[in-house]
Design a binder for these strands. Structure first.
Lengths: 145, 145
DNA sequence: GTTATAAAAGATGTTTAACTCTTTTATTAT
DNA sequence: ATAATAAAAGAGTTAAACATCTTTTATAAC
């Protein structure tokens, strides 16, 4: 596994895809998203259901329904996705898994690890969900081959 | 889960403990290590067995036996532990889990993520297994409460 | 209002990581 | 030699992450 769980990777890819589609003014179905971001369709359904519950994405049922993200949502940081799926451990947890670890009572890696964590956190917090929409549309970054 | 797997967290803590003990000139048993780093004893046995196989730690069986690390081993980077347990994904993998992702065909997070990955990698590569021995002995950093 | 569409919800199944148990092998001390 | 100690090795179990299936509910078009 990478830094994030597989579930979280699917989530980030899906949200970027929905963001791009919303920019283009269309709603997208689970089926379409799953094909594009190469994730198992029923599992992605569950993930999107959760993201919808916490308000990170919106959806409507029925014909011509699907998922979308409103303009306000596009401004939210991708940290929100990671937090919703993987929890806060990655933003705050000790690198060696020690629950007591702190500035006062540091583990050996505490100070070095803090730098890495901070860089990761600030990157996730300053990067917005809609930030890559134009690059995705023109193809200078991609979500699939 | 944090950045590393739980197994890897146990491994790093155990190796630091063995390193410290080796510095003090004594071998340590699985039982002692497991108590100190708060890991399940039989599971830790398996982990240490693997680390022993790849040569990161040494052991002798029988009375007064146990685990230790030779002076050369103390110079190795903790990246070796992470690599042995969690694999290279964390050093090289795409943040969004895309296997094709590269400089030429980047995912949206590629460039930002590279910085985080590089910082983490260089930290793990420049930090040695024996580096904290003195701080551990004098107690300015700790492996347990 | 009936039909088609698409997500929500809930129950269930599978796979992998985490963890345990038992037996074997090596070493040391007597 | 034999008894005690401690890791190695292999098989087995449990729990969590990953994934699927079925039913229900909401919406839209006719």
């Amino acid at each position: 596994m990478g830094i994030f769980s597989k579930t979280c990777e699917y989530a980030v890819r899906a949200v970027f895809y929905i963001a791009q589609s919303s920019q283009e003014g269309r709603k997208v179905s689970i089926k379409e998203i799953a094909e594009k971001v190469k994730s198992p369709e029923p599992f992605l359904g569950k993930i999107l259901q959760n993201l919808s519950k916490v308000g990170l994405i919106q959806s409507t049922k029925g014909p011509h329904g699907g998922f979308f993200i409103d303009p306000e949502g596009l401004k939210k940081p991708i940290a929100d996705i990671v937090l919703a799926i993987d929890g806060e451990q990655i933003f705050t947890g000790c690198g060696m898994g020690l629950d007591y670890c702190s500035e006062k009572n540091p583990c050996p890696l505490h100070h070095d690890f803090k730098k890495v964590r901070n860089q990761l956190s600030s990157m996730l917090k300053k990067t917005s969900i809609g930030q890559f929409n134009l690059q995705l549309i023109k193809g200078s970054v991609t979500l699939y081959k």
